[in-house]
């Protein structure tokens, strides 16, 4: 199977700080790939390269090659709007916009024009997209009568689901998740994990997590980062049972980190 995302020799500097040192990795489609490692190892930075969110930070320089579906994304002329439509991102803290629930989900479709699988020869309406997206994250039944309420009044778990629904509304293919459960309690975390599990048949998911049990529970492949380098990458069950590298073993057995 061709990789969905292929990264070759990726280097990233924040000013003088060398944050990523020659990372190469191939991420397969319709799988959950977990990225683990101690704080400051570059895992979030790496994730943010994949939709070029690091561009918003001053003083960041990226070198190397990243292709998604064979298309190079790092060159200066890359179409960032199309890239970010295709590669959506969920953040550490839920960040719904201070708008109504409906407007949050409709935000993307309104930007890009209503699109999606045609139904009976016509494009789906905004309302249909919102409903479909909210159903996909199991929020529709709870919120269908509250669509005009402010999204900021929802619980954190609902907010995070809403942020995922907001992404799904623009029909992405890849979902990048940057510690999506770190602001949630254990029960909400489990439910979001179930959602990730349901979604992986349709989407390529890359998830950064500091929680090794979470990586073990939800991912097919795991990548271990340390000090800006990709130390080890492979099937999750193998990484967690018989890691090849000493550093990986030290980390997953809790000797540091």
């Amino acid at each position: 199977m061709n990789p969905k995302i292929s990264v070759k020799n990726l280097h990233l500097h924040y000013g003088d700080f060398h944050a990523l040192k020659g990372v190469s990795i191939e991420i397969r489609p319709c799988r959950v790939t977990a990225i683990i490692g101690p704080s400051g190892c570059g895992k979030s930075t790496f994730l943010r390269c994949l939709n070029r969110m690091n561009d918003t930070i001053e003083g960041v320089k990226t070198e190397g090659l990243i292709t998604i579906d064979g298309e190079e994304i790092l060159h200066t002329g890359a179409d960032l709007i199309r890239l970010r439509k295709k590669v959506g991102m969920v953040f550490q803290r839920p960040n719904p916009f201070p708008l109504s629930i409906f407007e949050n989900v409709a935000f993307g479709p309104k930007l890009h024009g209503v699109s999606g699988p045609k139904k009976g020869g016509r494009a789906p309406s905004l309302e249909e997209i919102v409903e479909k997206s909210l159903r996909a994250v199991n929020l529709w039944d709870e919120l269908k009568d509250l669509l005009k309420d402010s999204a900021l009044r929802l619980s954190l778990e609902q907010q995070q689901r809403l942020c995922i629904a907001r992404l799904l509304a623009v029909n992405p293919e890849v979902l990048l998740m940057d510690e999506p459960c770190s602001a949630l309690d254990p029960v909400a975390t489990l439910r979001i994990e179930e959602l990730i599990h349901e979604m992986k048949k349709d989407y390529t998911i890359v998830i950064v997590t500091h929680n090794m049990q979470q990586a073990a529970r939800i991912s097919g492949e795991t990548a271990y980062f340390y000090l800006g380098e990709l130390i080890e990458f492979g099937r999750t069950d193998r990484i967690f049972t018989s890691p090849e590298k000493k550093e990986t073993e030290d980390y997953i057995t809790g000797r540091f980190g």
Partner: peptide, 13 residues
């Protein structure tokens, strides 16, 4: 909050 901006940009705004 910066997260609002990032959220919008990440949706392709």
């Amino acid at each position: 909050p910066r997260s609002y901006r990032e959220g919008a940009l990440a949706l392709g705004a």
